[in-house]
């Protein structure tokens, strides 16, 4: 039962990562491309990390528990660093004078 939960979480995370990549390609302007690049990547990696952490914690001993906690810590760090990096890029783009997209 828990194994099915892990695989569902990982597949969902993959869907988000795929959406992030397609969003980066398809959208017209840098600022619009920044939305999927920032948000969907962190959500996708959170879900995959959650699935991996639960999968590791299935056979329960201390070493596995510590590893799964580390995997969750990676997810938390990605949640902290990805928005900050995205903010940095957009701030640099605005200061460098990149005009937002205005066509119809």
């Amino acid at each position: 039962m828990l194994l099915a939960l892990c695989s569902i979480l990982i597949i969902l995370g993959m869907v988000f990562l795929l959406g992030g990549s397609v969003g980066i390609l398809r959208l017209p302007d840098f600022y619009t491309r920044m939305h999927p690049a920032g948000k969907l990547d962190s959500m996708g990696s959170l879900l995959v990390n959650l699935g991996v952490a639960i999968y590791v914690a299935l056979d329960f001993n201390l070493a596995n528990l510590l590893t799964s906690i580390k995997v969750l810590l990676i997810a938390v760090f990605i949640y902290l660093s990805s928005p900050t990096a995205t903010h940095c890029i957009v701030d640099a783009a605005i200061r460098a004078g990149l005009e937002p997209w205005k066509k119809g």
Binding site: F30, R33, M34, D41, G44, T86
Partner: peptide, 17 residues
């Protein structure tokens, strides 16, 4: 160049996974 930076950031965060 900021598109390239965003691409590198996307590839990097996928590499972690």
């Amino acid at each position: 160049v900021f598109d390239r930076l965003m691409g590198v950031n996307a590839v990097g965060s996928k590499t972690v996974v």
